[in-house]
């Protein structure tokens, strides 16, 4: 036993322990393709370039929110305030976006700043107090809604410049700008999650907080950055929305946080933290968009659509839990 390189030191072969992960990872992707196939057969209008363009454009706002909340959920947290951050951003950005006042970067930067500040506020309270993220962000949700109403005096902010309205309503190379923004931020978020130190720390903090701490990771710093990022992405979604509807709306974004969380969960992000991918979340958001579009095309009323959506959320999680290796 003195020789350091001896193969019989191997305690247990891992090959026996390695399980085939089956279709688990790809389950949602397969479900997504199947649903698309079914919809193309049932409604001929579905599989047209113009319809699909509409779907992805509509999905872009929820997807941006879902990217942010995916970061948060991977660290084992939650953010309920993003819908309200959308409203604050909307009002703030719109106030600086009237024609012939400021250049278009000003509404964008002020809007982003509003979202980042609210996100950082979440992070600060969560890390400095021991109050669970659910409660903290629930509070920020209400604070944000109130701020949006105060700043706008309860009225929509209209009359926005053409250059601002281009952000969410324009085309570049024939592609709607929201789709381009979606693609760019999907790539950025994926890279941050998969390739950077920060992304690794998110998985570590959510996977086993104690182990992360024992490895010298500063938990508070990671959480702080994650909630701030989430606020920033919500602000981006808010700017996009404001530009698309060409008004700053203090009542915008009600319930958006739940759609975003749903997209992340359908996409395989575990609410207990430690797992999740941006691709999954994107597919989750697309799945929600495709289904509501398909039901629209089939003339199913929105009442039924909500029921269907709920069933899909639960179904996705049940499917996922069935695929988990049993201890």
């Amino acid at each position: 036993m003195e020789n350091p390189v001896q193969t019989d030191r191997n305690p247990v072969g891992i090959s026996t322990k390695k399980r085939i992960r089956g279709i688990g990872q790809y389950g949602i992707f397969i479900a997504f393709i199947l649903i698309c196939l079914v919809l193309s057969v049932v409604t001929p209008k579905f599989l047209t370039v113009s319809n699909l363009t509409i779907v992805v454009t509509q999905v872009s706002i929820n997807a941006l929110l879902a990217f942010g909340v995916t970061f948060v959920i991977i660290t084992g947290g939650i953010d309920l305030s993003i819908g309200s951050i959308v409203a604050v951003t909307s009002v703030v950005a719109a106030s600086f976006a009237h024609p012939d006042t400021y250049p278009v970067v000003v509404p964008i930067l002020t809007g982003l700043a509003a979202g980042l500040i609210l996100g950082a506020f979440n992070g600060l309270v969560i890390t400095k107090s021991k109050v669970p993220p659910f409660i903290v962000t629930l509070g920020t949700m209400t604070i944000g809604r109130g701020l949006a109403l105060i700043l706008s005096k309860g009225r929509p902010v209209s009359n926005l410049s053409d250059s601002f309205n281009f952000i969410g309503g324009g085309h570049l190379l024939g592609i709607p700008t929201p789709i381009l923004i979606l693609i760019v931020f999907f790539i950025i978020c994926s890279v941050v999650l998969k390739k950077t130190v920060l992304g690794r720390y998110m998985y570590a903090v959510g996977g086993n907080e104690q182990a992360a701490q024992a490895s010298g990771i500063q938990l508070n710093k990671v959480k702080m950055v994650v909630y701030t990022l989430c606020g920033g992405l919500a602000a981006l979604a808010g700017i996009l929305l404001t530009s698309r509807i060409t008004t700053g709306q203090p009542n915008a974004g009600v319930g958006f946080e739940l759609d975003a969380i749903a997209a992340a969960i359908i996409g395989g992000t575990s609410t207990s933290g430690g797992t999740g991918t941006m691709t999954g979340t994107l597919i989750g958001a697309l799945l929600i968009g495709v289904i509501s579009n398909g039901l629209d095309l089939m003339n199913v009323t929105s009442y039924y659509q909500q029921v269907v959506m709920g069933v899909i959320i639960i179904g996705a999680v049940v499917l996922d839990s069935l695929n988990q290796p049993k201890s």
């Binding site: 690794r200 570590a204 996977g207 086993n208 104690q210 182990a211 992360a212 490895s215 430690g274 797992t275």
Partner: peptide, 8 residues
Amino acid sequence: EILIVPEL
């Protein structure tokens, strides 16, 4: 209590 991150 072995401190590892199971998903990594």
